[in-house]
Simulated scan of single mutants.
Amino acid sequence: MSFEEYKDIWVFIECFQGQPKNVGFELLGQGRILADRLKQKLCAVVIESNVDKAIDGAKCYGADKIYVVQGEEYKNYSSDSYGNAFLKLCHKYRPNTILIGATIRGRELGSKIAVSLRTGLTADCTALSVDEDNANVVWERPAFGGNLYAQILCSGTRPQMGTVRPGAFKKPEKEENNISKIITENIRMDKVSALTKVIDFIKSTEDAGVKLEEAEYIVSGGRGMKGPENFAMLKELADLLGGAVGASRAAVDSGWVPQSKQVGQTGKTVSPRVYIACGISGAVQHLAGMSSSDTIIAINKDESAPIFEVADYGVVGDVFEMVPALIKEVRSIKNL
């Protein structure tokens, strides 16, 4: 089957109230690799009422083209309005591949588009590559509880589509002088046609501080923390570092921390500059969510814990002695 009419790699730049999310820029970096290997253009798709920041970011992170749909009906995300706009762009320009962040909105939008276009969608990917023989994207994702990774091809239809975990890739270097071609499409949707509308936003108390998936420093706790009260010292260390607190599934399942803090195959994928694992054994499901961190520091009493196999620095010791010592040292360095 020939797919010559389908060209270019598209990346959806998700925004919230005009502010682009990091995952779109992370995917532009990976999209560039795919586009170069397939000898196609890298394109960003921006749908919003306030598009300026998203366009500027897409330019700096390497987009060759930027498709822009702007209007007051796109101020708040709706699968009806966003889906309608995205589908019209697809019908007109026929992309070869579409990358969307595996966020709550991205997962909904991706599946709506895929069903409408009668194509495949690989969800929750953590790695991407190209099948050089057939020019198919190889979508890689955890399977069977993270015990193995599946490689999935969409060889029978186009566009190829996948949602990719935030934090699975790092943002590329900025190119301040990059020149992108801006293509503006006037796609409007009558408010009456939308099945849903946003009434209000209620900010979660968990949203305060640095977001886990965007933090450069993460201090995570596992079963070895022994209880919810002991996560206070992890938060103290994270705050001193300007970072965020994470947790293993064991800590979340025990009810010590909310699920939004979970790092791992069934949680969030992160790639901070420094990841400090405290009392975490290092099950493969957890490693799937943090192994791409620049530097991993592990603290565990069990010298045979799997976490030490991926750690750059390992401390065999009691977290209740080591973490307070780290806090004291950081305070001393900062003259606090």
Rank of each mutant, 00 (worst) to 15 (best):
134 N>L: 10
277 A>G: 04
16 F>C: 04
56 D>M: 12
308 F>K: 09
260 S>C: 10
58 A>H: 06
40 Q>N: 08
17 Q>S: 14
165 R>M: 11
225 M>G: 05
283 A>E: 12
226 K>G: 02
214 E>R: 02
294 D>L: 02
72 E>A: 09
275 Y>K: 00
44 A>F: 10
66 I>P: 08
215 A>H: 01
51 V>T: 15
111 S>Q: 12
71 G>D: 14
192 V>P: 00
258 P>N: 09
173 E>K: 14
151 Q>T: 02
45 V>K: 04
247 A>Q: 00
254 S>G: 12
12 F>Q: 07
239 D>A: 10
244 A>H: 03
332 S>Y: 07
217 Y>R: 06
86 F>L: 14
123 A>H: 03
82 Y>K: 09
110 G>D: 05
46 V>A: 02
324 P>S: 04
167 G>T: 05
76 N>I: 00
249 R>M: 03
140 E>I: 13
63 A>N: 06
79 S>P: 05
34 L>V: 10
131 D>G: 05
28 L>A: 11
254 S>Q: 11
133 D>L: 14
277 A>R: 01
229 E>N: 15
134 N>H: 14
53 K>L: 15
93 Y>Q: 07
284 V>F: 05
26 E>I: 02
2 S>G: 13
162 G>D: 04
78 S>W: 00
32 R>C: 07
17 Q>C: 06
114 A>Y: 05
240 L>F: 01
32 R>L: 08
124 D>P: 14
269 T>H: 13
58 A>T: 06
100 I>W: 10
200 D>K: 14
11 V>M: 13
183 I>G: 04
298 A>T: 12
15 C>Y: 04
261 K>F: 00
22 N>C: 02
83 G>H: 09
140 E>R: 13
80 D>E: 11
148 L>V: 12
163 T>W: 08
99 L>G: 01
112 K>T: 04
265 Q>W: 05
144 F>L: 14
13 I>Y: 09
286 H>G: 01
269 T>L: 13
282 G>D: 01
36 D>S: 14
85 A>S: 10
89 L>P: 01
149 Y>Q: 13
243 G>N: 03
84 N>A: 09
332 S>T: 11
240 L>T: 06
266 T>Y: 06
312 D>A: 11
309 E>K: 15
167 G>I: 04
309 E>M: 10
70 Q>S: 15
311 A>T: 11
9 I>A: 11
109 L>S: 05
238 A>P: 05
68 V>W: 08
259 Q>F: 02
126 T>M: 12
268 K>D: 00
276 I>F: 00
217 Y>D: 07
312 D>E: 08
210 V>M: 01
67 Y>T: 02
122 T>G: 09
228 P>D: 11
258 P>F: 00
318 D>I: 08
177 N>K: 15
14 E>F: 06
64 D>E: 11
212 L>F: 05
73 E>R: 13
62 G>D: 03
315 V>S: 07
327 I>Q: 00
287 L>Q: 07
178 N>V: 00
296 I>D: 10
284 V>D: 08
29 G>Y: 05
